[in-house]
Amino acid sequence: MRHIISLLMENEAGALSRVAGLFSARGYNIESLTVAATDDPSLSRMTLVTRGSDEIIEQITKQLNKLVDVVRLIDLSSSSYIEREFMMIKLRALGAAREEFKRLADIFQGSVIDVTDNSYVIEMIGNSEKLDAFIKAVGDEVVLEVVRSGVTGISRGEKGLRA
């Protein structure tokens, strides 16, 4: 099952490699990993998307918690949460397709942010499924380039992940 793990880590050099190294050393799979500083500059926040049985996810969270630099961790997918991913997609846009892509972008609440005679760049935010759905809607054959940020997420309600 797919899990989204959010963690706060001391913002030290090498923090990212400790997490990435743990996943490769123990053979856990990792679908995406995002990392950036938070409102507290001494902390980095990472969001990991991984898949595994309950036993494997339990080991992953225990092993992450064991890293000396990890301050706090939650498995967002264990309760109610919101996930978002950002995508920029470059499409071959010719003739009638130009209007069609514009309309599709509107439906998906994306916007065209770069235009040439034969291409569009569209930006879009959503959960991963929505972005997948957009790519499917325009069709593989017109896609020139896709860049996705990887998933970030936050829990619903007032409780937050704080140091």
Partner: peptide, 12 residues
């Protein structure tokens, strides 16, 4: 980097 996987923790 070399010792990271075989230490409890390391510091630079």
């Amino acid at each position: 980097g070399i010792t990271r996987p075989c230490v409890k923790h390391n510091f630079l």
